[in-house]
Amino acid sequence: MRPLDFDYMLSILPVLLKYLPLTMGMASISMLLALGLSCLVAIIRVLQIPILNSLSKVFISFFRGTPLLVQLFLFYYGLPQIFTSLTALDGVSAAIIGLTLHFSAYMAESIRAAILGVDRSQWEAARSIGMSEGQMMRRIILPQAARVAAPTLVNYFIDLIKSTSLAFTLGVTELMGATQKEAAGSFLYFESFILVALIYWVIVEILSHIQKVLEQRLGKAVAR
C-alpha cells in the first residue's frame, strides 16, 4: 500500500480552485432560473389554470422521472440533431438548461406545498378586499410561502452544486472536469478525486451552516 502523495495534492489544489468560479457560476445561474420557473409552475398548479396545469404535470413528471445525465445528453447531443439552430449550443449552456429544468421540476412541488400550507384565512382575507389572484400571490401568499420553502431551496442548491460535476460529460472543464484531466495526466487518481471530494465537502458544509442560520432566523420571525 503506497502512501498518499500530499505534495501532489497541494500542487494541484490551486489548479482546481481556478475552476471553482465556473462551477459556482453554473450552479448560481441555474438556481436563479430554476427558482423563477418553479414559482411559475407552482402557481399554475395551485390555481389549476386549464391546459397549463396539464402541461406542468407532464413537465414535472418527465424531469423528475428521468436521470439528469440523460437530460443533459438530450439537450447537448440529441436536440441539435432535430433543431439545427441548436448546433451552436455549447456545453456550459446545455448544462445550465438541463440543471435549470431538472431542479425546477423538484422545486415546483416544494413551492406548491409551501403555498398550499399558507392558512386559508389569508386567501379569504385577500379576496375579501378585492385583490386579484396575481396581487394575492405576489403580496400575501408568496412572501409567507417563501419563509417555509427557503430551507428546502437551500438543500436543492446544495444538490445542484454537486450535480454540476456531470457537466464534464459534455466537455465542460469545470471543477470535476479539471480533476479528471489532472488525474489522467498524473495517474494519481485517488489523490485527485479525494481532493475534489474535500472541496465539494467544504462548500456543502458552508452552505449547510448558512441553512441552519436561515432556519433559526426564520423560526424567530415566525415566533414573533
Results as ranks from 00 to 15, higher is better:
Ala150Asn: 09
Pro80Tyr: 08
Ala126Val: 08
Leu68Val: 11
Ala149Ser: 15
Leu89Arg: 01
Gly25Leu: 09
Ala34Asn: 05
Phe103Met: 09
Leu214Thr: 00
Phe6Lys: 04
Gln71Glu: 13
Glu174Trp: 12
Gly134Asp: 01
Tyr77Met: 10
Phe73Met: 14
Ala88Met: 04
Arg64Ser: 06
Met9Pro: 08
Leu198Ile: 14
Leu4Lys: 06
Gly91Val: 03
Thr23Glu: 07
Ala42Pro: 05
Arg138Met: 06
Asp119Gly: 03
Gly91Tyr: 05
Leu142Ser: 02
Ala197Phe: 12
Ala27Leu: 03
Gly171Trp: 05
Gly177Asp: 03
Thr23Asp: 06
Arg64Thr: 06
Leu74His: 01
Thr164Asp: 09
Leu52Tyr: 11
Thr100Asn: 09
Met137Ala: 12
Lys220Leu: 01
Met137Gln: 03
Pro151Gly: 10
Ile82Asn: 07
Ile115Phe: 14
Gln81Phe: 08
Met31Asp: 05
Phe75Thr: 13
Ile97Gly: 05
Leu17Val: 14
Phe187Leu: 14
Ile29Glu: 03
Met107Lys: 02
Ile96Ser: 11
Ala178Phe: 10
Leu153Ala: 06
Ala88Ser: 13
Leu10Phe: 15
Leu13Phe: 15
Arg217Trp: 05
Arg127Ile: 04
Glu215Tyr: 00
Phe168Cys: 12
Met26Asn: 02
Met136Gln: 10
Gly171Val: 04
Val222Phe: 12
Leu22Asn: 10
Ile206Val: 15
Thr169Ser: 15
Ile111Ser: 08
Leu72Trp: 06
Gly36Phe: 13
Gln144Ala: 08
Ser54Glu: 13
Ala95Glu: 08
Phe63Ser: 03
Ser208Arg: 00
Thr84Asp: 10
Gln122Leu: 14
Glu124Met: 02
Leu198Lys: 01
Met26Trp: 07
Leu79Thr: 10
Phe6Arg: 04
Gln48Glu: 14
Leu99Asn: 02
Leu55Gln: 03
Leu170Val: 07
Phe75Lys: 01
Arg64Gln: 10
Gly177Thr: 05
Ala167Glu: 02
Ala42Tyr: 03
Gln122Lys: 03
Tyr156Thr: 06
Gly177Ser: 11
Pro3Trp: 13
Ile199Cys: 09
Ile97Ser: 12
Phe103Leu: 08
Ser104Met: 05
Leu207Trp: 01
Thr169Met: 10
Trp201Pro: 11
